[in-house]
């Protein structure tokens, strides 16, 4: 099937099979490698992308479903310059192996876009579908909370 896909503001014209999963098409056909293959059944969150600004498991979306929607991956978030959140993740040594990081950056980006000064519970909720086996989450949560505090300072 013909598919036109918008990934990080670039248009792609692709020929895909209905059974092709969006995650695989992004990685193998578009070359966008930040969404990772972790479980392929929606449990781990490492394939998280944003579709129209909403975090979605790209392993649970058929590529043909993405027609007409805007897809954002972490390559699109930090393309020109890193976001404040990304800088805080770096300075806080938030990640270890980094495999879950692209998904977590996107889930946290979605959260901050809708809720600029989230509570600790809000952050835990937003990240609850992104499994991280290394960090115990604490340094990740702290960085998102710090990003929220900066938002508060800016708006104050």
């Amino acid at each position: 099937m013909e598919l036109s896909l918008n990934v990080n503001n670039e248009e792609w014209a692709l020929d895909v099979a209905p059974a092709d999963v969006l995650l695989d098409v992004l990685r193998e056909r578009v070359g966008t490698k930040s969404p990772k293959i972790g479980c392929e059944r929606g449990d781990c969150g490492s394939c998280t992308i944003l579709i129209d600004g909403r975090s979605v498991r790209s392993c649970l979306v058929l590529a043909v479903e993405a027609e007409g929607h805007e897809i954002t991956t972490v390559e699109g978030i930090g393309a020109d310059h890193l976001s404040e959140l990304q800088n805080l993740f770096i300075s806080n040594n938030s990640f270890q192996c980094g495999f879950c990081a692209p998904g977590i950056v996107l889930s946290a980006t979605e959260l901050l876009a809708r809720n600029p000064s989230p509570s600790r519970h809000d952050v835990q909720e937003a990240l609850s579908g992104n499994l991280c086996r290394c960090t115990g989450y604490e340094p990740i949560i702290e960085a998102v909370l710090a990003a929220g505090e900066r938002n508060e300072e800016v708006s104050a």
């Binding site: 929606g42 969150g45 909403r54 975090s55 979605v56 649970l60 889930s107 979605e110 579908g129 992104n130």
Partner: peptide
């Protein structure tokens, strides 16, 4: 139900 990334779909 699950987590935000699932509930969004």
């Amino acid at each position: 139900v699950a987590s935000p990334g699932i509930r969004n779909r």
